[in-house]
Design a protein around this nucleic acid. Structure first.
Lengths: 236, 236
DNA sequence: CAGTGGTCTAGACCACGTG
DNA sequence: ACGTGGTCTAGACCACTGG
């Protein structure tokens, strides 16, 4: 049963922070002092600090010192996929229409396109228990001959498609969820009551490198079929 | 303009993964070979790999090698606070009642208490525009003389309270959001229509160290006052 | 100027996985 | 037995901060 030095040090410092012996804003002893105190090399001591920095317990200011972080509101984490995240067994994902449209102002802004540019609009619906559970609209800047368009049309699952593509790591996605009262169009689509709130999720997907929007999507989900599970981040 | 070696290496390997030269499941060359290839010490090379592991581009199996990760469904991140996350200006947080109750089966399980144990039930409501926007119930295992009880009663904001306490880093929280149709009790509380869907969020808060439940909470929010914004994690 | 953290080296020993 | 990754050392030089 071998001890791992740098983890022991992490635990020790973390405990001091949790028990209030080190308070937010406090400076830690210098790395030289700490390495001497724990009887390890500075390299090892720095490995411990790196872990604590990563877990947001401390932060460092070059030339000054290592400081204890302020406590923060905890972040929750969840996974979302517009098809697989639904409650229940998905019977079918139906392609409703594919059109090239002239974008309105809102869409022009979301996709960063200009007057005269065309936008591809793909409508789909997800069937659960032989009834529509979700209606989705995917908007893509229309680029002639872009192979992604074919994929978007044929793949049931846009998220899965993006994950599997080469772009896997370069995407940044936003996600906004609201409950709305469906308009007439949506009521017919989803076969729901006027008063029944439905889940409205919209998102923009941009390339991390270029900050170019790749897609703007809207998902309308009957609330019976949706649940969102999240957890605080484990900084294990 | 000084280059940082280990960051250059990170970028190089990351680019190889993103451009498909290294595919998921592939083994990287050994650390010895890589350090030779890049002309750096193994320590430096390992620093690069540590960063890539942290960003989930690669993972390592001791005794075997470093492997390229499978692409994953991207995780979204958001912050939630049962009072501050509401849309609109909060007029007031009203304490409705504090009771010690005998827990039902569901609650006994959520809080890991036993028959005969008591549970503290705190009810509050949040007022926006002079109307109730949220109704919340906080359940805590009843421990005689526990100072946290006083705090929970008097603080408007349970999350903020926990953040500020010494327990700041040791908490693990779950979060589940659904849209439900309000029952009679809830309709009266929130002054809403029978058909109007309302947001139902429940969560358990447990101590990371002991895995002991600290609290089980339910939040009922009128859907007009709620929106959830999330983003993919930035592994900067 | 001395002290701090950031980077980097060239070694070393260990436990583990595979032949 | 050998190669792998995991840990650790005892140095070094740099850029930045502050008195």
């Amino acid at each position: 049963m071998r001890r791992v030095l740098y983890l022991d040090i992490v635990n020790d410092i973390q405990a001091q922070i949790e028990h209030g012996e080190l308070k937010p804003g406090d400076v830690l002893p210098s790395e030289h002092e700490l390495s001497e105190f724990y009887g390890v090399s500075r390299t090892t001591l720095r490995k411990s600090l790196a872990l604590l920095i990563n877990r947001n317990f401390i932060y460092s200011i070059p030339g000054k010192g290592n400081y204890v972080s302020e406590p923060k509101i905890s972040a929750y984490q969840f996974y979302f996929d517009e098809v697989d995240s639904l409650k229940g067994q998905v019977d079918e994902v139906r392609l409703l229409s594919v059109k090239a449209i002239r974008p309105g102002r809102k869409l022009m802004q979301a996709l960063d396109v200009h007057t005269g540019d065309k936008v591809l609009k793909v409508e789909k619906e997800v069937i659960i228990n032989n009834r529509p559970a979700e209606y989705m609209i995917i908007y893509l800047p229309y680029v002639k001959g872009d192979p992604i368009i074919e994929d978007v049309i044929h793949f049931a699952n846009f998220h899965g498609l993006l994950e599997k593509s080469r772009l896997q790591f370069q995407l940044e996605k936003s996600f906004t969820l609201e409950v709305i009262r469906p308009n007439y169009h949506m009521r017919r689509r989803l076969q729901c009551d006027p008063e029944e709130g439905i889940i409205f999720i919209h998102q923009t997907i941009v390339s991390v490198d270029t900050q170019q929007p790749i897609s703007y999507n809207e998902y309308y989900i009957k609330s019976d079929y949706f649940v969102l599970d999240a957890k605080t981040l484990q900084t294990k």
